[in-house]
Design a protein around this nucleic acid. Sequence first.
DNA 1: GGCAAATAATTCAACCGTTGAACAAATCGC
DNA 2: GCGATTTGTTCAACGGTTGAATTATTTGCC
Lengths: 389, 389
Amino acid sequence: MTDGPVRQASLREHNLGLVLRQAANALRPPSRADIAAATSLTRATVSALVDDLIAGGLLTEVEPTPRAGAGRPAAGLVLSASGPAGLGLEINVDYLSACVVDLAGTVRHRDVRRADQRPGGPDQVLAEVAGLAADARAHAEREGLVLAGAALAVPGLVTPEGVVRLAPNLGWRDVDVPAAFDGLPVTVDNEANLAALGELHAGPGGPASFLYVSGEIGIGAGIVLHGTLFRGARGWSGELGHVAVRPDGPACRCGARGCLEQYAGQEAILRAAAATGTEDLRVRAESGELAVLGALAAAGEALGVAVAGVVNLLDVEAVVLGGVYAPLAPWLRPAVAAEIRSRVLTDAWSPVDVRPSVLGADAAVVGAAGSVVRTIRNHPARWLTRTVS
Amino acid sequence: MTDGPVRQASLREHNLGLVLRQAANALRPPSRADIAAATSLTRATVSALVDDLIAGGLLTEVEPTPRAGAGRPAAGLVLSASGPAGLGLEINVDYLSACVVDLAGTVRHRDVRRADQRPGGPDQVLAEVAGLAADARAHAEREGLVLAGAALAVPGLVTPEGVVRLAPNLGWRDVDVPAAFDGLPVTVDNEANLAALGELHAGPGGPASFLYVSGEIGIGAGIVLHGTLFRGARGWSGELGHVAVRPDGPACRCGARGCLEQYAGQEAILRAAAATGTEDLRVRAESGELAVLGALAAAGEALGVAVAGVVNLLDVEAVVLGGVYAPLAPWLRPAVAAEIRSRVLTDAWSPVDVRPSVLGADAAVVGAAGSVVRTIRNHPARWLTRTVS
DNA sequence: GGCAAATAATTCAACCGTTGAACAAATCGC
DNA sequence: GCGATTTGTTCAACGGTTGAATTATTTGCC
């Protein structure tokens, strides 16, 4: 709306994206005529656009779907499974991960290396990630895919240029990530943001506005509003872990007091339950151990207080429990939902859905890879007119 | 991006808006050539668009501004001061208010009636507001203005259709406001939302993302992200007053405990300072009375805890203290700023500006009227092609 | 088996908005 | 008074969409 001028070419760019997304979001492969009807463009226009998209390798025609009644059979259109693909990468405290997602959104390659990433330091870790990326690229090319770009998820604060300003749990500060990948263009983003994007596109029919809560050692949040990830004015949104639950509570490593992280962070829960890890916690919760159930209920209550504040402020439709919270959701969810019910005025007539992440631990990498293919889906003209590399 | 198709006509619609906004936002009346340079459209195109806008009464040519150097003098373009105008209305607990803003954004008419609105009930209040609206329309027409629409600010929760679902301080519930204005089309919105819009457009160069905090009997908030008001998934964003400051604090009338309203609501501050009203509070704070300063500091601290949580989550650039907080800002600001400084991790390198509202008590009405003219500025084609009424 | 009805996709002239270059208008400086 | 300079308009060309006509391919009915 406040943007630049619109020329004739912009028309085509926009409508190319519109047609491509129609094919992407349809339940069954649509015909040109279906797309024309859905977009209210002419069949002539849709045909012309589809020709461009097929020529550019973004769409493929499939066999006519059998249909009742008379008439020439329709040629189904699907996103090409051998066109451009996205590479997702993730650096986390105890693993590195990569995945390749094709234009249709299906995961074509997946690779995880579990190891504590803290001792190595940025240079070593980034070198290893570059190795993962090279493996993934080789795998993708064997399947006829072309990597259109890469996105890297990092558990920390990232500037719009891709510099990791601060990643407390990795011990990183001011690490220039894109510089380490000389070949491939890499965008870097916060792990919770990319996981939220992953959830957003995980299944059709999900909520368009939600809060994705990423429970790790810290607690991050990805905010999706009206189907769009909100990164904050300067890219630093989502610091849910340092929202105050009790202003005079225990001191946090951030310098303040009573932050949510002190009540519902992974370390706080493990300490309260005297557990060795998330899996231990889950097993003992399942067996009904009271100390564990109490620790989870307390964490859920604190989380619920903070999340209820967010819901009061943003009126999101859903809260997604991700990261380590996903497997623990059966025990966290009741307390979170109860706090929302009692603290959110509008909950009475507009209830908020609290549910575990559907992608679980994969959310961030899959979201990262998905974000790459999604930029192509949204701006196919840029891909079609790219300089051949 | 996810929207509908773009036809040739959409081109023109978009570019009409672009040209109009260039004229609106320029420091001095720009020439057609200036607009062409700024938008990277051709002079030919700009000329054609400007012709339409002048013919439609949205732009006016003014005398050539004297300029150094050779060349044909440029005709300056300004928004018409006699074209469409917006009517802003406000219902609050202790006053009704109206104002008319012309296309250029200047306030052309202003009217306030102070009286407690609680006893009358919705029907009586709405009848009186309709009277204010009629007066304003008469006044506007005498000045050659045509009212393009009206927006009404209400201290409560409003559905997208304009039904006041709940306005606790007025004692309203499920009041269908647009039905009461049979003549004029009225959009209804929350008072804090419209006040935030007022602040957004009050002066050029303000922040594009900020939290407007409206201190009244309740505490509302208007959230502006990237220059756009965010209303929430279902229109119920901004319930800052019921964010928990201390989860086990005093009971709130909403049913929960420890809501911000119990610490920083108008009534809580007055009680703590044993003051009779905001003005009393301000005078006694100015004279340095310790009990009053303490009460304001305590309120500011609670407000700061809640606002710091918002900043952590949304990474807004500024926090605007509005409503009764505006005149009290000198005493509230330090505590709010201190909480943000200590609780927001990113504040160290991206400080947050805490400042009083520039429009003060007028923010909501002016914002309401401004929202009407702004829709014309953003979609001039709709106005130009309107059916002559 | 043949033919009408129905639906899909393509072709093509017309239309519309922007472009770019040429041109007319108006002023300044020398 | 004349060239330089800048503004604003005119007009043919271009690119993209439209809508109607045409071609392509199937089903169903006689």
